[in-house]
């Protein structure tokens, strides 16, 4: 029961969309396609929120034990509670009078700048990595560097000032050698993913049972 039922459920659930994909029968379409898609949106929504319980547990635990940095856990929990209640008891977007609902306000002035700034730090790291780690130590690295320089010159307005052919050369690299290599990678990765799917569909691999 603990093992057999989920395996059967997973195998069934994985075959339904595949069957609906090939066989357009009205009943199949209604239940394996339309209804299932609508249901999955809802289940995905529940699944998306799963991590929140762990987050609350871990942080409460930290606060109760007064572990190192527990004060930050308090900040996490408080800001979580405020934002969650804005979402649960409010709406998104703007009011009739043009002011923002608190949910959208917090998003725009707290969530958005933080997320954006944390990722913008990468601009600095890319610069220092370029200086300290990009070396023409062998054939491969040299090709990589040459490709990178052409694309970098070709993609900035400054590149066309050096020579009008620079942007065209960059575009040619993107469309032909780059697209060819990317295609090889896409096909290879798709094969890997498809074989993973097949292993789950025949019940050899069972990621839903926790550790196999």
């Amino acid at each position: 029961m603990k093992r057999q039922v989920p395996i059967m459920l997973a195998i069934t659930a994985s075959f339904l969309p595949v069957i609906a994909f090939f066989f357009p029968n009205a009943w199949i379409n209604e239940w394996f396609n339309r209804k299932l898609d609508e249901w999955m949106v809802i289940i995905a929504s529940f699944a998306f929120l799963l991590g929140i319980v762990s987050m609350v547990q871990v942080n409460l635990h930290k606060v109760r034990r007064r572990q190192k940095g527990w004060i930050f856990s308090v900040i996490i929990l408080v800001s979580f509670a405020i934002m969650a209640s804005c979402g649960l008891f409010g709406a998104q977007g703007e009011r009739e009078n043009g002011t923002l609902y608190p949910f959208t306000w917090i998003f725009q002035f707290i969530y958005a700048p933080m997320q954006a700034t944390m990722f913008s730090l990468l601009a600095f790291y890319v610069a220092s990595a370029s200086y300290r780690a990009f070396r023409v130590k062998n054939m491969e690295a040299s090709l990589l560097l040459i490709g990178a320089l052409i694309i970098m010159f070709g993609r900035i307005p400054f590149g066309a000032l050096i020579h009008p052919v620079v942007p065209d050369l960059a575009e040619w690299i993107m469309r032909f050698p780059n697209a060819a290599a990317q295609r090889g990678i896409i096909i290879g990765a798709a094969l890997g993913a498809a074989s993973m799917s097949i292993r789950v569909m025949v019940g050899i691999e069972r990621p839903y049972l926790g550790k196999s």
């Binding site: 370029s130 560097l145 900035i156």
Partner: peptide, 24 residues
């Protein structure tokens, strides 16, 4: 933004080239 890109790209390209000269 592309103005800024031009300048920062040139800075980074300079770093790459200078780094490699130093390396050699």
């Amino acid at each position: 933004g592309m103005d800024v890109q031009s300048v920062v790209h040139l800075v980074i390209i300079f770093f790459i080239l200078f780094g490699n000269v130093m390396f050699i």
